[in-house]
Design a protein around this nucleic acid. Structure first.
Lengths: 187, 187
DNA sequence: GCCCGTTGTGTACGGTCGTTCTTATGACTT
DNA sequence: AAGTCATAAGAACGACCGTACACAACGGGC
């Protein structure tokens, strides 16, 4: 640091508190109006910060979206893995999975919408695809605590289908139907 | 003005050939660049028609997207139901399903992308949600030719998951793995 | 007390968007 | 032959977009 402190070409996290709030608000906007409506201006309005603050803290809109989805995935995946780790056996693990699905993902409109929006955005943006892939692999690793890898993969695919199904269908499957399908696949 | 022949307030299908071509081109653009990039202008450019032609033949962009997705769903669902109807028994039906999945949906990047784009768009647009719901119910009805309703629903959810999985994952399941999962669920 | 670099803000630019509306065209009726 | 009107084209409008950039605020080193 003697001289030329090389002013951090990339990193721009001077006000961590505001940065955090921007990420949270971004998730709120995505959940409420979709990723297509998550513009610099709409987020700035929702967070009540000046427009320039966004490009100041995040180099581009994609960076901001990636940060937001990453936070969301971290939250959900960590919660799931924690519960999965606490399950004593395979049957309990399946019950944890049912609970996670019906309670967390399908039960909360916010989380459900965020999942689908992430799917969509990831289909086009490589940076976001990395986030979904991370989610998938973490979820699979959690499942593999109690299931063999092949079954874990099948269950993972079914779970994704159930999420989508629940988001788009008029009469989504209830907890009992989900439990039955999962136990037929992995019981 | 006395006469005021009330000039066909709604219907506007004067040049069916061009209208058809616009729908096809719209699907091409969506498959190539996503529904977010499917603007009046990009479609007009791709179809080599003047911009005004789009709003002339379709009252709004949403109308055009709905028409495009409807055509796509009709094509895929009809093909699937036809094959399903030709299956003599349950085992053959499952094999048809595997073939439909690996060959049609997962095998063709175009169809796969269109499916995911439709999922995404449907999450926000009620008119498009109706299209996906129609697809789901037709697909379920095809499955119910050989499966009981409960199993058909589970299989339907798994299929959607496999589509999404295949679109986003780095190492999607192959035909053998899909066959195994399906037969475990419905065999 | 002055200076200057860090931190943060607001405006402006160039572009794309959906949609509207004026205008051209050409075929059919009278 | 003239008039009419469905059909088609494309320019124009107002809005919103991401990003760049000039500039304000301000606190610490001389």
């Amino acid at each position: 640091m003697s001289a030329a402190p090389a002013p951090a070409r990339r990193a721009r996290r001077y006000d961590p508190e505001r940065r955090d709030r921007l990420v949270d608000t971004t998730l709120d906007v995505i959940a409420a109006h979709g990723v297509a409506a998550a513009s610099h201006r709409s987020i700035a309005r929702a967070a009540d910060v000046p427009l320039g603050s966004l490009t100041y803290h995040f180099g581009s809109l994609t960076d901001l979206l990636a940060a937001a989805f990453t936070r969301h995935v971290d939250t959900v995946a960590a919660r799931f893995d924690e519960r999965m780790a606490g399950a004593p056996d395979r049957a309990a693990a399946l019950e944890v999975l049912v609970e996670h699905l019906t309670g967390d993902l399908l039960g909360s409109p916010r989380d459900l919408v965020l999942a689908v929006e992430l799917y969509v955005a990831a289909a086009r943006d490589p940076a976001l695809r990395a986030v979904t892939q991370d989610w998938m692999s973490r979820s699979r690793r959690s499942l593999e605590r109690h299931l063999d890898p092949v079954t874990a993969r099948e269950v993972d695919a079914l779970v994704e289908g159930l999420v989508l199904h629940s988001a788009l269908s008029t009469d989504p499957m209830d907890a009992a139907a989900i439990r039955s399908a999962l136990s037929r696949l992995a019981g």
